[in-house]
């Protein structure tokens, strides 16, 4: 039986997102802060969808997504200088971040916590390598980008919307395809999946590569927005941890979960941690612990139970 892709709620959801984006851009002269806020919602949603493909669908609990996010941002910095075309550079840079899956291939054999630890170790290694490779990352001072002035904040928000739409459609189409079902089977029971002749290692590799692709897109997009790239802001542990934290908060293996995670994180970013300074760590740590203890299914699952709306089940 062919899985039926729930296009209706997906299109509704994306139409709603586009409508909000249009409104936000429309009133951006009167409410400039809203534009910035909405950009961060879109950015974190893309990043969370990317983690959700690996962590949610396939149970590849990566603690090192900053590796993809940051390296793509730095690749974008160089590519945009060479090509002069930010859109092309985003596409190329996110493709390049897939190459980073290479060093992770041996780790794909590992399960659960051992996989988590090796992704974390490799991302810390990636942090040190990029920090000390000045020609690539600009070292401690970072790289200032010269972006085509046509890419104003408003245009960048539309670019972000475009990337988010592509990521969401990919996610939904993937989840209701043979590949996605194979991923979920791998997540639920690796031995059983293997005995049903599902090529588990290949499935994991595809899952992680797709995840790296969108994490890279998010990183490159953010480099475009900031027109500045620095190792600490793009490649650090906190960036790595952000992905699982907001995805678990929103809802694992759910598109709606990723969007809720993105929204909640933007709220946290602007209204909670802005005043905390060094205690930001405290907040995220406590949030992670609280989510795991109190709301293990995520907000989307709870909303699904209450509203019974099909939007929360995609």
């Amino acid at each position: 039986m062919k899985p039926v892709v729930p296009w209706r709620p997906t299109v509704l959801l994306l139409a709603a997102l586009s409508a909000v984006t249009l409104t936000v851009v429309g009133i951006s002269r009167a409410e400039p802060f809203l534009l910035i806020f909405w950009y961060f919602v879109l950015l974190y949603s893309i990043y969370s969808i990317s983690w959700n493909i690996a962590g949610g669908l396939t149970n590849l609990f990566s603690l090192g997504h900053a590796m993809f996010f940051g390296t793509a941002a730095m690749t974008f910095a160089h590519l945009s200088r060479i090509t002069g075309n930010p859109l092309l550079s985003i596409a190329l840079a996110s493709g390049a971040s897939c190459l980073l899956v290479g060093p992770l291939i041996p780790a794909l054999r590992l399960r659960g916590p051992f996989f988590m630890l090796s992704t974390y170790a490799l991302s810390v290694a990636a942090y040190f390598v990029t920090l000390n490779t000045d020609w690539f990352s600009g070292g401690g001072s970072g790289i200032v980008l010269r972006i085509d002035p046509a890419y104003t904040r408003e245009v960048t928000v539309f670019v972000a919307l475009g990337v988010l739409v592509v990521a969401s459609l990919t996610f939904v189409r993937l989840k209701w395809s043979y590949l996605g079902i194979a991923m979920i089977a791998t997540r639920d029971d690796e031995e059983a999946a293997e005995s049903l002749s599902i090529p588990v290692s290949r499935i994991k590799l595809i899952s992680l590569s797709l995840s790296a692709l969108f994490a890279g897109a998010a990183g490159a997009l953010h480099a475009l927005w900031l027109s500045y790239v620095h190792v600490d802001a793009f490649n650090s542990t906190s960036v790595s941890l952000l992905a699982p934290v907001i995805t678990l908060l929103g809802g694992k293996a759910l598109l709606s979960g990723s969007l809720i995670g993105g929204l909640v994180n933007a709220v946290i970013y602007f209204y909670v941690t802005a005043g905390l300074g060094e205690a930001t760590l405290l907040f995220y740590g406590a949030l992670l612990a609280a989510v795991l203890l109190l709301e293990p299914d995520g907000v989307a699952k709870t909303l699904q139970k209450i509203t019974k709306s099909p939007i929360f089940s995609i």
């Binding site: 609990f61 659960g112 405290l282 293990p296």
Partner: peptide, 24 residues
Amino acid sequence: GRVLENSLLLFFGVLLALTGVTYL
């Protein structure tokens, strides 16, 4: 099998929270 992963994440949270307290 979920205990290991979730406990690792939980303790990571505790680690960050307590480190934040030290910063404060």
